[in-house]
C-alpha cells in the first residue's frame, strides 16, 4: 500500500503536476489500450492540439470550437443542452460525452463506431449539424493563419499543415486529459479513507454496477444495454445503426462514472438531469451483459437507503483537480476570444 502511495505521490508531482510533458500512467490504472500514444505524448503536440481544440476556425462560420460542446468545466461534456448544439443552433441527436482517460477506451462515440481517437475529429468537423466544415478546408484555413506555422513546426519539425497532423495533434491533447485524482483514487493508493456510507456504497457498486462500469476507469468500454426506454422521436438504435445486426439494437458504449457531478445530463440522449433519476432507472432491473458473449445477467434491486449510499460513493469519483487544471483550459495567452 505504501509503495503505491509513494508512486501515486510521485505521479502527482512529476506526472500530472509538471506542465504536461511527462504524463504517466497512474499506478493503480491498468495498461492503456493506446499504450504507445501515452508513452509518446509530447508537450509541443499537446500544446498545438489544445489550440486547435479551442479554435472556432474549425467550423464553417468560425462560431463553434470543440470546446463549445466539450467544456473543460464540465469534464469536457456539455450541460446546457441535452442534445448536442452545433452550428447555427442546430440540434443533434445525442448528448456530448465527457472526455478523459481516452487512451483506455477501445472505441469512441455512443455506438462505438470509431475505433481510433486520431480519426474521431473528422466526425464533428464534417458533420453538417456540428461544425459543417470539410477537413480539406480546415487544413487550408489553418495553413493561412499566421498563428499556426510556428506551433506546427514545434510539434512536427515542419510548419506545413496536413490533415494527418491536425487530427493527430487534437488526439494528443485529448489523450493527455487524465482524471485520476478523485477521492476514490486517493483511497485506492492509501492517501485517504471512505466514510462508512461511502464504503457501503462502494460494496453496492461492486455488486451491481462494476461488471459494466468497471473500476478504476469505471467502464469496460464495451457496448452494453442498460434497458432505457426508447425515445420515440429520436429512435436511436445505438450500435445497430452501424452494424445492422439485431443483437446490437439499443447497445451503447458504457460511459465512465467519473466526474458525474460535472457532466450531467446523463445517458446518450441526456434524458436524466440527476443521479437520483439514474438510480431510479436501475433500482429494479435485470440486465444482461454483452461482454465476451457470455450473457452474464446482473440483477439489480436497490432500496431507498441503498440508493443514497450508492450516490455517496459515486460522488467520490469527482476529480476537482482534473476539472480545474489550468493546463487543460482555454489557452488565453495565445488565442483571443
Amino acid at each position: 500500500m505504501r509503495a503505491v502511495a509513494v508512486l501515486f505521490f510521485l505521479w502527482m508531482v512529476f506526472g500530472a503536476a509538471t506542465k504536461y510533458s511527462k504524463i504517466g500512467i497512474p499506478p493503480h490504472f491498468p495498461k492503456p489500450y493506446f499504450y504507445e500514444k501515452i508513452l509518446l505524448l509530447d508537450s509541443s503536440t499537446i500544446e498545438l492540439g489544445r489550440l486547435l481544440f479551442y479554435d472556432p476556425n474549425l467550423s464553417a462560420d468560425s462560431s463553434i470550437s470543440c470546446a463549445s460542446c466539450h467544456s473543460p468545466y464540465n469534464a469536457f461534456a456539455h450541460t446546457d443542452h441535452k442534445l448536442s448544439h452545433g452550428i447555427q443552433d442546430q440540434i443533434g441527436t445525442r448528448n456530448a460525452p465527457a472526455l478523459f482517460n481516452l487512451a483506455w477506451s477501445k472505441n469512441f462515440m455512443w455506438d462505438g463506431s470509431i475505433l481510433h481517437l486520431d480519426l474521431q475529429a473528422l466526425s464533428p468537423i464534417n458533420h453538417p449539424k456540428e461544425m459543417a466544415e470539410t477537413t480539406a478546408n480546415v487544413v487550408k484555413k489553418i495553413s493561412q493563419s499566421s498563428l499556426y506555422p510556428h506551433f506546427f513546426y514545434k510539434a512536427f519539425g515542419d510548419s506545413a499543415v496536413s490533415g494527418e497532423k491536425l487530427v493527430k495533434a487534437l488526439a494528443q491533447f485529448q489523450f493527455s486529459l487524465i482524471s485520476a485524482n478523485s477521492k476514490y483514487d486517493q483511497v485506492k493508493v492509501g492517501l485517504n479513507h471512505f466514510s462508512d456510507q461511502e464504503q457501503r456504497g462502494y460494496t453496492l457498486f461492486k455488486e451491481n454496477c462494476n461488471h459494466c462500469h468497471t473500476e478504476p476507469l469505471f467502464s469496460n468500454f464495451e457496448i452494453e444495454k442498460n434497458k432505457l426506454k426508447v425515445d420515440s422521436d429520436l429512435q436511436d438504435l445505438g450500435k445497430f445503426q452501424i452494424t445492422n445486426e439485431p443483437r446490437d439494437s439499443f447497445g451503447f458504449k458504457v460511459p465512465s462514472l467519473r466526474n458525474l457531478s460535472y457532466s450531467y445530463p446523463y445517458m446518450h440522449d441526456g434524458r436524466f438531469q440527476y443521479l437520483s433519476e439514474v438510480l431510479e432507472h436501475y433500482s429494479n432491473q435485470t440486465l444482461t451483459s454483452m461482454k465476451d458473449s457470455l450473457n452474464k445477467t446482473i440483477e439489480i434491486n436497490l432500496n431507498s437507503n441503498e440508493k443514497i449510499d450508492l450516490i455517496s460513493f459515486l460522488l467520490t469519483l469527482n476529480d476537482t483537480s482534473f476539472v480545474f487544471n489550468p493546463a487543460y483550459h482555454f489557452p488565453k495567452s495565445i488565442l483571443k476570444r
Binding site: 480519426l119 490533415g163 494527418e164
Partner: peptide, 22 residues
C-alpha cells in the same frame, strides 16, 4: 483502416475517410 491517422495519399483531408465511422 484500423490504425491511426496517416499522411500522404491516405491523409484524411482527401475526404476518403468516413467521418462517422472507422
Amino acid at each position: 483502416n484500423e490504425d491511426g491517422a496517416k499522411g500522404g495519399d491516405l491523409d484524411p483531408m482527401h475526404g476518403m475517410y468516413w467521418t462517422w465511422q472507422t
